[in-house]
Structures are given as structure tokens and as C-alpha cells.
Amino acid sequence: MTHQTVLVTGAGGGIGSAVAEAFAGDGWRTVLCGRSEAELESTAEAVSAAGGTPVVHPVDVRDEDGVFDALLETVPETLDVLLPAAAVMPHAPGERPLQAEDYEDVRAVLDTNVYGLFAVIREALQFMDPDGRVLVPSGAVARDPKPGMGAYAPSKAAAEALARGFAVDVDQTVGIVDPGIVATDLTGGAGRDPADVAELFRWAALECPPEELDGEIVGLREWKRATR
């Protein structure tokens, strides 16, 4: 039984819940954060059934004080792995060109996907030893925008820039994990099953050499090549 702790934001569904369940198989203490307590409880049931120790703590990543309080209340000693997976896109992929974005929606996207990401990483680092790891989920849209993605694509580009910035400034390993297109609410259900890419994140957290992850992007190709 491990005494390690992973904290996942956006743990109520999609990649967040799938990765939480993947860590559960090793008996990790799994801190589940998100806005919907009901969705977090559903993930907690799956984590518990898989052998993990779930801890549910609703939090809005845009509230830095709430993020710090969540960490203070749920991390008993040190945080080993952080997966800041909380993200929003207020419209379906491909449906809104950037020039047609509503100001309110742009603010909501940047507040969660960029400011919220910054707040979660900054506060979590205080609870991590130097060998801790931060895995920032992203996708090719951050580097190769597609039509109609609105503010979401720029927000993911900013998320990758934040990951690189932290990587050069802190002792912990901060990397970007690109699982390709995954079937979540953000993609309208199109793409790979989140469970099929959860092991990619687990590999990035536990096995990927730190020099290959820190400030870099690892994805399906690197994972398959390392584990085949």
C-alpha cells in the first residue's frame, strides 16, 4: 500500500476522473477537486472500488484562497503528483470563431483555463517535495489551432507556456501531457475513451524520465515507445 498522494482538479469527469481511477489501482490517496460535489462523489466511488483512498473536496480553481484551503485540508504530508485538469469551453468545438466570441465567455475560459491553472500550480508547489510532478493536460490545438475553437485554443497555448515557465523556475518536474483528442464534454464526446489514455498520465507521473518531461510535451507516441 502506497502512502503517496495525487491531487486532481476537474476530477468530476473526463480525463480527471479516469486518471484518478488509474492511480487508485496502486492504492494512492487520491484528492478529487472540482465544482460539482455530486460528480466528485461518483468518481470517488470508482476510485474506492479500484483500491484507492478518495478524498472529495469541492473547489473552484479560480479562487486561489479556496485552492490553498483545499490543499491544506486534504494533503496530510506531501503532494506527490498534481493533475490540474479543470478546463472549460462554453461551446462545441468548431462552432465559434474567435472574432465571434462573447466577452463573458472569453473571461470565463481564461479565468479557469489560465488563471485557475496558475493558481492551482502555484499553491500546490508549497505542498510538494522537489521530486514532485505536475502534469498539465493539453492538446495539439494549443500549437495548431483549428477553426471555430474560440478562446479555448489560446487558453491551452497559455497553459503550455505556464507549464514551461514553472519548469524553469521550480525544482519540481512540470510537464505537458498531450493525449490527443479524448471523448469528454469539451470535445462533444468525440475521441478516445478517457480510460484508454489514463495510463499515459500515470506513466508520465511515475516512469517518464524527468529530463524528458520537465518543460516538454509527452504524448501517446512517447508513452508507446517507452512501454512497448
Rank of each mutant, 00 (worst) to 15 (best):
P84H: 04
G165T: 10
G16P: 07
A11M: 12
Y115N: 13
A140H: 04
L135N: 01
A70G: 13
G219P: 08
D131S: 15
E199M: 09
G148C: 01
D63Q: 12
A151E: 06
V182D: 09
A190S: 07
P54M: 05
P154M: 11
L40P: 06
L213K: 12
V75Q: 01
T9L: 14
P210K: 15
L117F: 09
P145D: 05
S155D: 00
E222W: 10
V56K: 14
D102C: 07
P209K: 05
L220Q: 13
L220R: 14
L213C: 07
D144E: 09
V109G: 10
T2P: 02
T187F: 08
S36W: 03
V6G: 03
E41V: 02
A119D: 13
G51A: 09
L220A: 06
D129W: 01
D60M: 14
R107D: 04
D131K: 14
A205V: 01
D65I: 04
P179D: 08
P130L: 06
G132K: 14
G215Y: 05
P130F: 02
F68D: 15
F166T: 01
T5A: 04
R192C: 05
L40W: 02
T187I: 02
E77F: 11
A190C: 00
R35F: 05
K146D: 02
V170Y: 13
F201R: 10
A50C: 08
A86E: 10
G116N: 11
